[in-house]
Design a protein around this nucleic acid. Sequence first.
DNA 1: TATTCCCCGCCAGGGT
Length: 850
Amino acid sequence: MNRRAPFGELLERVDQWMHLRGWSPFRFQRDAWKAYLSGCHGMIDAATGTGKTLAAWIGPLVEGMAEPQPTAPGCRLLWITPMRALATDTEANLREAMEGLGVGWRLERRTSDSPQHLKNKQLRQLPEALITTPESLSLLLTHADVLPQLATTRCVVVDEWHELMGSKRGVQTELVLARLRQLNPNLRAWGISATLGNPDEAARRLIGSTPRLPLMKIQGGQRKKLHLDSIIPTQIERFPWAGHLGTRQTQGVVEAIEGASSTLVFTNTRAQAEIWYRTLLQARPDWAGLIAIHHGSLDRQVRQWVEEHLRLGRLRAVVCTSSLDLGVDFSAVDLVVQVGSPKGIGRLLQRAGRSGHQPDGKSRMVFVPTHAMELAELAAARDAVDAQEVESRIPPAMPLDLLAQHLVTIAIGGGFTREAMLEEIRTTAAYAEITDSQWHWVLDHITTGGALHAYPEFRRVVQEEDRFVVRDRRIIAQHRMAIGTIVSDAAIQVQWMKGGALGTVEESFIARLKPGDKFAFAGKVLELVMVRENRAYVKRSKGQPDAIPRWMGGRLPLSAELSGRLRQRLEEAASGIFRGPEMQALRPMLWLQRQWSHLPRRHQWLIESTTAKDGFYCFLYPFAGRLAHEGLAALLGYRLSRLQPISLSMACNEYGLLLHSDQVWDLHQAIARGWLAPNRLEEDILGSLQVSELARRHFREIARTSGLVHLGAPGRPKSMRQQQASSQLIFDVYQRYDPTNLLMEQARQEALHLQLDATRLRQVVDSWRGQELIVRATRSFTPLAFPLVVDRLRDRVSSESLEGRIRRMQQQLECLAADEPTDAEWSLGAKDESGVETAPRATAGRKRKG
DNA sequence: TATTCCCCGCCAGGGT
């Protein structure tokens, strides 16, 4: 059958339709359409706002044009998005395209907030085009009746695939795709992704380990233009302390916002967003009503209001967190402000791309450093952007908790047989390598409950002849409520006395307040009236808040790629090269670092030690990110304590770590005795890091995903304490009766990698072998050391006396500091860098005027 | 003035 000729004609109609809208197709869009129509899988990789969604949906729609009214029932196009907000947006755009092109398909959305009657209708008859999330699609698989309708699906598009693939949500998507491929072996899978470091793996994960169709990789359009500026503080402190708010730069940010029509101000934490919102409003009270705040702990209604007004171009600025990294298309936004380090190149590009979000638009970002070294980070980020070096997204390694969940899902939706199912899941990249024994363990886990076999609720799946199915209606209902991999933290609802939710804060925060106390939240000053049944009732207040909530959350460590570029910039500086305004501004500080100690090159490890009145300080600078440094500090402390009795305190930041002790110890001797040796690393990590305690805490998430604990109905959640208690109970049972349980092992592995960044920790220790060790004893704290000293002090003294001490230390250091060097001095200094081992260099600092 | 903890998802049958 010749399908090419009619498609050619239909593609001309696509051209006409685009022409009417004033567009002409980009080359990569045409490539994508052709590849799709010739029956390929596809992977579209491009910056945001370059027209890549259009590249993905025209192909399937052209097929729809060939079939103006569906001849047989069933789904044709499945569109998977990671966010409900994106689903809404996509629905509107897709509908417009379908109408314009004369595609007579029904188009619907299915997410948790879809009306119940629509969901019911969809179970009887799926629309031809369905937009949904991985979780909702997974849920759909629990309904055996819809499977024949899913079998008619020709194309599944996964939007923002880069966002999903690094998490269990991505693995869940892989499992769903495997099921869809089983239903229709000729299903075409198309991924849409922003630039990422491992595009080949992204494609492989999407199409599975044994694809039947060819894959076409489509590079989207030309690179998006990015204009990057920094607000450089007029006076760079030579000894930057580990500040993090950056509110000193308020005036610069106000001016930037004034110069743009609509601005997104990204901060790294929710508390920081609250603080910046207040700060901006204090600087410009006339902006009341024109600026807004948006983060993940605000109520959906509040956030939707902000998104809507942003879309309509009615807001001068929105202060936000990653909550606006993705999502709806804000074409009014023409400037992005990034407060503090973005910590990764991908995140920087993603956020910058929120401005000028249209084909041939230009992105503009203004960077606000919160301490001096962040200027070097931004300089490093520029290099990475130029080189298009973006982080990889590393998918989790074969999560068996999720596999257990998926198997129950399939067992509910019509059941499965042992062999066919194993074959199916081995077509995913995630489980391609699953061993027979792992497989049997998971199967046993869901059918007998393993060590919990005495309790019927853990024997969820039953075997009827050769099929594994679920019959218990209560188990079915519970499972449907528990599908997904996101495990939320406990939270207290904040709401007005009259009703109307504002958002959530943590229980521990509210517990510290008493009625009548004022706190800042959702950009308002609120007075706590009372706390009843997990709800904090508040009324509006004025004046200064007593507190600003903070939330627990993941910590974003400096990415390895960005860190590598940062070290490169420091190496350049060591040779007297300062490219760009950021590095120029850092000159005095880096000069001092080099004069007093050393500026490490990339093949060098710098260790500094300082003997001060209050003890002995040892600083190491692996530049491996805060998480890995925390693990490393614990590890090195543990090893040291085995070499000699010693009591240590520690501090970490993104660049290095500090070990402090009251007594002086011999650094060289410790190194000689294997303090830094890479051997016995595993044992020492296990010995020093209380891995089992971390695993115990992390087990809650695994128990939840694998279906061992349930959460209660939505809206009436079980309390955190209940959840934690039941998962702890199970953990204890396993530990006692089934210690080799694979979920326990998974808990240990995930705790090590997610909470301690064990991969980078290992890399750091391994790299010591090939690196040159530079050990410097310094008379005073160097610019690299200073923030760590401050960090350690912060835990010990009140904030007022801390500030005083910091000022005094700063002044003392400034007095010792040398004047800024000439270029000649830099290059002169660069020559005498041969020494691995040098005497204290602090004397090199000359007298400073005044 | 504030000095380091992102984000995303999720049910369904029986009653009027």
